[in-house]
Nucleic acid binder design. Structure first.
Length: 452
RNA sequence: GCGCCCUUCGUCUAUCGGUUAGGACUCAAGAUUUUCAUUCUUGCAAGAGGGGUUCGACUCCCCUAGGGCGCACCA
């Protein structure tokens, strides 16, 4: 398959289909996709469904849907439940080289040991008791009906790597428990399939949350063990670990899952490009600002720009960014998603926080609108002064000048009543742009206090 | 409990021993819109606390406080 000589970058996003994608998952997807895009590489979507008790096809479909909405098309797809044979083969090579060994403690026993160690002010590290089991011991345990789980024997040396975000990192594997790779029921845990797939698909860069920092040391050792025993050209990827998000109040993100899922953002009218920009920019040295495309975001992206302190995810800031993105979008970017044409978009976009709000303004343009008559005399004067159509952007100026001359009203006293009569509200887009869209008939009726 | 990481304007951050500590968002003021929004300009505003090292510390070291992460037969 792939080898050291292949320079193309390959990144991956590897969610578990055990729930809806959250903003934290979204950031992992965005950063990996942007890095691949920037470097002209490929972006892989890997469904990590090794836990078949929690993974569902529905969540997998939802992940695909959310990613498509975000605009992050993948170039490579794999599902771990389809690849068990590969993991089995890798496990066999590790067993043959003595790096994978059977252990027979029950989860309860292990839990008790951990508690005891912590009570004794010591780190809860597995004591490797299973390593000293003789063949007879194992035969006896299995005769009792015990099934082994399998642990990877760590080197107990220091593992170091140059993290693209954190700089040099060193972890002493002697302070870690030998990770369980295979459950007693034979199912694989996340660690081995992940490394096997990273090798198989030639993943060159792994950008993920800092909750994986400690995991990285065992994973690097597994990479190296598989390279040594399988001679398959395994290349250890570049790792980049970013700090996790925290909520403005300091709460951990996962505690408020529902309100922070990508689909809730979508339902609330957040533009995918706004979310992508927010996820790509917060916690970095770049200003948090909208960009016109994923390509523009990709061009900006660099792992070194990501800070080492946790970033605050603020839904209000995202909503504001959404508005600013809308304000810069040309009509072509929203054609088909809004009613009306380019002139309508041009008129209303400065007033939008969400694209769906365009509907509100479209109803105000097309009616029926119940006018708010604050100053009946002024409104009546205006109705009488409406020029004949055709109307354009100069019509409003001519009308207000004439009304001002006739009534003596000016400034807010002039504009506010007219706006309320014409649109039924006190705020809104520039009337010089809105008035031609409303048209003479409706404008006249509304100024006369009629719903139109 | 043990280990690792972090702490600069209200928020996100720049600075990598010598700066008037810079930018973005928010906020405020002014301009434009004879109104609101938009847009433009200007402004307010910061090195957690305490010790060191140094001619000089936001920057290096130690302690304290606060925060994040890890220590699963989850991923």
């Amino acid at each position: 398959m792939r080898g050291i000589d292949d320079p193309v970058t390959v990144t991956r996003f590897a969610p578990s289909p055990t729930g809806y994608l959250q903003v934290g998952n979204g950031r992992a997807a965005v950063l990996n996709a942007l890095f691949a895009r920037k470097t002209g590489g490929r972006f892989m979507l890997r469904i990590d469904d090794t836990d078949d008790t929690r993974s569902t096809a529905e969540f997998e479909a939802a992940i695909l849907e959310d990613l498509a909405w975000l605009g992050l098309a993948h170039d490579i797809f794999a599902r771990q439940s389809d690849r068990a044979a590969l993991y089995g083969a890798a496990a066999e090579t590790l067993k043959a080289s003595g790096r994978l060994y059977p252990a027979y403690e029950t989860p309860d026993e292990l839990e008790r040991r951990r508690r005891r160690q912590m009570a004794a002010h010591k780190p809860p590290v597995y004591d490797r008791a299973a390593l000293s089991l003789t063949a007879e011991d194992r035969a006896r345990l299995e005769a009792e009906g015990r099934k082994p789980h399998w642990r990877f024997r760590l080197s107990h040396a220091k593992v170091a790597w140059q993290d693209a975000i954190r700089g040099p990192v060193e972890i002493d594997t002697a302070t870690l428990s030998d990770p369980v790779l295979i459950r007693a029921d034979g199912r694989f845990l996340y660690t081995l399939p992940s490394v096997v797939d990273d090798i198989d698909f030639g993943i060159t860069h792994i950008i993920r949350g800092e909750d994986h920092v400690t995991n990285t040391a065992p994973q690097i050792e597994i990479f190296e063990a598989l390279r040594a025993t399988a001679n398959n050209g395994a290349v250890t990827p570049v790792f980049a670990h970013y700090p996790l998000f925290v909520m403005p109040g300091g709460e951990v993100l996962s505690k408020r899952k529902g309100s922070l899922s990508l689909r809730v953002m979508r339902e609330e009218g957040i533009e995918p490009l706004a979310l992508a920009a927010y996820l790509a920019k917060i916690g970095t040295s770049d200003p948090v600002e909208p960009r016109p495309s994923l390509d523009a975001l990709a061009a900006d992206f660099a792992p070194e720009k990501i800070a080492r302190a946790p970033a605050h995810f603020d839904a209000a800031e995202l909503a504001a960014l959404n508005g600013r993105l809308l304000h810069m979008l040309p009509y072509e970017a929203v054609a088909g998603r809004i009613p009306g044409g380019a002139a309508f978009w041009d008129a209303v976009k400065p007033n939008l926080g969400r694209l769906a709000d365009a509907e509100t303004w479209w109803r105000i343009v097309t009616g029926p609108v119940a006018p708010v008559i604050e100053n009946p005399d002024l409104a009546a004067q205006a109705a009488g002064l409406l020029p004949p159509e055709p109307w354009d952007e100069t019509t409003w100026g001519a009308l207000t000048k004439a009304v001002s001359a006739a009534t003596g009203a000016k400034g807010r006293a002039l504009f506010h009543p007219l706006r309320e009569a014409l649109t039924g509200r006190g705020d809104g887009p520039e009337l010089k742009k809105l008035l031609p869209l409303i048209g003479r008939d409706k404008a006249r009726a509304r100024l006369c206090g009629e719903t139109a």
